[in-house]
Amino acid sequence: MKEFLCTDKDFKDIAALVYNACGIVLGEHKREMVYSRLARRVREHRLKNFSEYLAYLNSNKDKEFDAFINAITTNLTSFFREPHHFEFLKHTIVPQLLNSNKVAKRVRVWSAGCSTGEEPYSLAITLADLFPSSWDVKILATDLDSNVLAKAQAGIYTAANVNGLEDKTLKKWFLKSKDGHTYKIKPKLNKNIFFKRLNLLQDWPMQGQFDLILCRNVVIYFDKETKDTLFKRYANALNNSGYLFLGHSESMGKEHSEFKNLGKTMYQKQHNARTV
């Protein structure tokens, strides 16, 4: 018997709140996950069941809603996850940018769904030695979850988190604690990374366009209508011939003619693609 009662109506109400807030679809197969994550919130507020928690949530949205969304969202990541993306960045995208942007000397990359920071730091490590110091290279890292965003900004990881990184990478970009249990990102790496909280379904405050957007293992939680809208918005946010990377289990339909499918969940914006 479960600690707290969660009725069918409770689950439907939770699913509706999450979908309306951030477009994540919670099917029946997610019910156990929802229960386990929100039970902590019910317990913390010393409530009797999920119905009481929903009543509390509706009465205290300014205080509780962020914690509610943070509890639901999934944050699984690692350094240089899906390494073929970073190889393509290094060997194909960077040489193109060095040629096409040699006058402006400006590069913009967006990690959309940066989780605890491993992705934007992996990007920064990849780019750091490839552009001359005179170039203006910046990485925007956004996430809906304020808790993981704070962890990303702190840039402190356990030995298990950095397991698999080369020793030379650790020595160059991380400060190892005296006990060897934690590794902190060096200031020289995160000085050009800007962490911001952002709901992808709401307005985007960014004015400029990007050369590369990574939205990996994010759209898998959205329904088709939300995905289609997001892909069009990404096309609008990319420079001509800019790139979009999705996660390994995600894909884009052929109807999105504004993108060319390069394989391995990599897409390039068609030059002068018409978007709405």
Rank of each mutant, 00 (worst) to 15 (best):
A235D: 10
S111I: 00
S133V: 13
L38F: 04
F50T: 04
R216N: 04
N272Y: 13
C6W: 11
S78H: 10
A152N: 06
H29D: 15
L57M: 10
E44I: 02
E44Q: 15
M1S: 12
L47W: 08
I125N: 09
F68R: 02
R197P: 09
H271T: 15
V18R: 01
E32F: 03
N236P: 03
M1T: 08
L214C: 12
K227N: 10
S249E: 03
K184W: 09
N70I: 09
K102L: 06
F86R: 01
R274V: 14
V25L: 06
K186V: 07
A112W: 02
L198T: 10
Y243L: 03
L244I: 00
T182N: 09
Y234P: 03
A160Q: 12
P187K: 01
V103L: 14
M266W: 10
K178A: 14
N239H: 13
Y234R: 08
Q209L: 11
D203R: 13
R81P: 03
T158W: 05
E87V: 13
G253A: 12
D167R: 08
H85V: 00
H91A: 04
K172E: 12
S111A: 11
H256C: 00
L127C: 09
N239W: 08
L76Y: 12
F174N: 05
R274T: 11
E64L: 11
S146T: 10
A141I: 03
E118W: 01
A273G: 14
D211L: 05
L38Q: 06
K2H: 11
E32A: 06
N163P: 01
T116S: 15
A128D: 15
N161Y: 03
I69N: 00
K176S: 05
N49Q: 05
F231I: 07
K188W: 10
P83N: 09
Y243W: 13
Q270S: 15
G164P: 04
C215P: 02
E64A: 08
Y157K: 03
R106P: 00
K191F: 13
N58M: 10
L130E: 12
P132K: 01
A71V: 04
K184R: 15
K61W: 11
V34M: 01
R197I: 07
P132S: 02
N190A: 07
F80D: 12
H181A: 14
E52L: 01
L198H: 15
F259I: 02
I125T: 09
A21H: 15
K9P: 03
M33D: 08
V148I: 11
M33F: 08
D66L: 07
F210G: 02
K171A: 14
K172G: 10
H248Q: 05
F50K: 04
H271S: 09
F245I: 00
R81K: 04
F11H: 01
T126R: 03
N190C: 09
K172P: 09
L98F: 00
K12S: 13
N272G: 08
N49R: 02
R216D: 06
A235H: 11
V25K: 10
E119F: 00
L76F: 12
R106Y: 09
K9E: 14
K151D: 04
